[in-house]
Write a protein that binds this DNA or RNA. Sequence first.
DNA 1: TGCTCGATTACCT
DNA 2: GGTAATCGAGCAA
Length: 264
Amino acid sequence: MKIISSWQLASSGYALTVHNQDATERLPREFFGRPATEVAPDLLGCVLWHASPAGLVAARLVEVEAYRGALDPASHSYRGRTARNAVMFGPPGHAYVYFTYGMHYCVNLVCQPAGLPEAVLIRAGAVVAGADLARRRRYGLADADGSAKASGARNGRQRERDLARGPGRLCQALGIDRSLDGADACVPGGPIGISPPEAFGQAEAGSGAIRVGPRVGISRAADLPWRYWLAGDDHVSAYKALPPREPQPKPVSDRAAEDGTMHG
DNA sequence: TGCTCGATTACCT
DNA sequence: GGTAATCGAGCAA
């Protein structure tokens, strides 16, 4: 295996050697064989790419979240293995893609050795290659030039920022769906991969300040600070916290009338 | 078998 | 800021 580059990630001191067996550098599997809370900040600045028959789209990662399996009530794998989350229980470096809200896909990268179902959710990125294809996927053929003529008040600059801002948008821009569930991001020749920042001419990871805070849109374990993002980057998604979910009482017909109040 | 909820987004006011 | 869209997973009965 040809070693083409080596550097040290600023956030954790994790020494990384990148190997090259095909056209694009990939982070090695051992990079992902660690707790998700260690992998997540190290992914910031790195580049997720998907090479499909239509072309290659790549995004520099600016926002991620760690999900820690049995340790984490908000993790899909918290309650054990199911058909949907089976990939999380497998070896590290694979993509776990799931479908949510009836219309969106979200992509995770599996961490830890097989049997420890941890993963890092990719929440947002900045498109650094294949922007034309990304625009077509996001806004359609007529809007591939990035103009805002089709709808509403969104201007071109906002559209560029929003190409991969949010987990659903990122998957749409990169053309990621359930067909890529289980895809190996570390194997040479595979359709998806994670590359170090320098592979796409980006600044080194850790060159900007990494911020840490609570995760977005979850109701369980919402206080855990397992969301990581690059401070001041426009491509980070808007933070929206959910109120803590309280156990719902059994629906008893008389109960609502007795209570009277909808919310405490 | 049926129901509820969700690691979201786009559009409208 | 509010809400509709939309459907699969998971749970309860």
